[in-house]
Design a binder for these strands. Sequence first.
DNA 1: GCATATCCTGACCAAATGGTCAAGTTTCCA
DNA 2: TGGAAACTTGACCATTTGGTCAGGATATGC
Lengths: 215, 215
Amino acid sequence: MTGKKTKLSKSNSEQRIRARNEAKILKSAVELFSRKGFDGTRIAEIAEASGLPKANVYYYFANKAAIYTRLIEGVLTGWDRALEHITPDREPREALSLYIAAKLDYSRKHASESRFFANEMLRGGKFLSRQQKRHMKEITREYARVIEGWMEEGKIVRVDPNHFLIMLWATTQFYADFSTVAAATVEKKHLTASDFETARSTIVDIILNNCVPPR
Amino acid sequence: MTGKKTKLSKSNSEQRIRARNEAKILKSAVELFSRKGFDGTRIAEIAEASGLPKANVYYYFANKAAIYTRLIEGVLTGWDRALEHITPDREPREALSLYIAAKLDYSRKHASESRFFANEMLRGGKFLSRQQKRHMKEITREYARVIEGWMEEGKIVRVDPNHFLIMLWATTQFYADFSTVAAATVEKKHLTASDFETARSTIVDIILNNCVPPR
DNA sequence: GCATATCCTGACCAAATGGTCAAGTTTCCA
DNA sequence: TGGAAACTTGACCATTTGGTCAGGATATGC
């Protein structure tokens, strides 16, 4: 490319157009994919929801799978962050409280992303690359070790650390993935911040206060 | 219908053909719908997986939605059954232990049905009729009352009964809905009976042993 | 002002899809 | 054994779908 403006040095306004349109497409796509899955979502629906003509969507993304894999990358980045609270130098009560709060916060603010990923996992996670799967496994193993360490030090009641992690994930993601069920259970149309706070304290009460001896 | 053999009095072999083919179609459909959702699943795929020509599927079911709603009816029947363990005349430890075991048993033996329903809930549960939604709400309310009664009697630590139920659902269904994630977490290709038993004891340890005072 | 890069988009394409139909086959019972 | 009911299924239909293309519009920088 010999033009003065190249892909590697776009002007701000060019970057603004591309960044804005890609963001619009991704935001619409995550909502639709989270409800209808990869196969059930139409490119025309993504286009319509993002306010762009269908051919324009193909201007920014090579194909349907490219949109989908971009979304997976974004979600995995968020997944990692919450787990950062679990470090061996921390007391488990503090670390796990922060983790539970962070997960519930993610469920509240990124319900579409959580549901999108849940949908992908329901179908077996086939869109995740080997590297992404390996990464999740390694991270999980690392955190299971931290939890096991706390158990060995008598800081947490001894249970299977893997199943313990599963429990933390299940109870926090439920509020995003199955928000319709959760809302109906608490007899509301939608979950409120108060519901998430009750969820947090319930999970802390039941899981932490059993597993972590009082100070 | 003036024929000797009518819809209301089919012979055994006729019933055998219809029952067998309907069962084949439903079994294939629940697996496909559980992975790809309503919109993403093709009638041709259901036909192929059940070993029938596509037109034959339409001989037994009016349309795609008819297959889907039949599956929802079946799943709701199963959902009810597990909750039967929660009765006020029982001690909570016994009742909840049985409930957790029943739910995990369902997750192990009916993973496709569980995933199918999870998929439907991910999309907002729009296929459930008003009556079905009301039924689920009433059942949930009834069991929340039983749990609340146990709390008032001091038999269970006081937490929000609705969120307590959510926790029970989340931690047991996870093993069916996200079996790929659970298997990867325990570093196996597939969950075994032993994994379900570890799951059961972990859930009982963490939830019951905290919430229910020792005998 | 002009050349180049980027963006936009209606029309189009081949393949796929939910569903139908008519005719043949099989089953069943009097 | 024959007639009726139930079952089977290849071919077909109209519509939908993922994706492409060519040409025009806009933005930008010298």
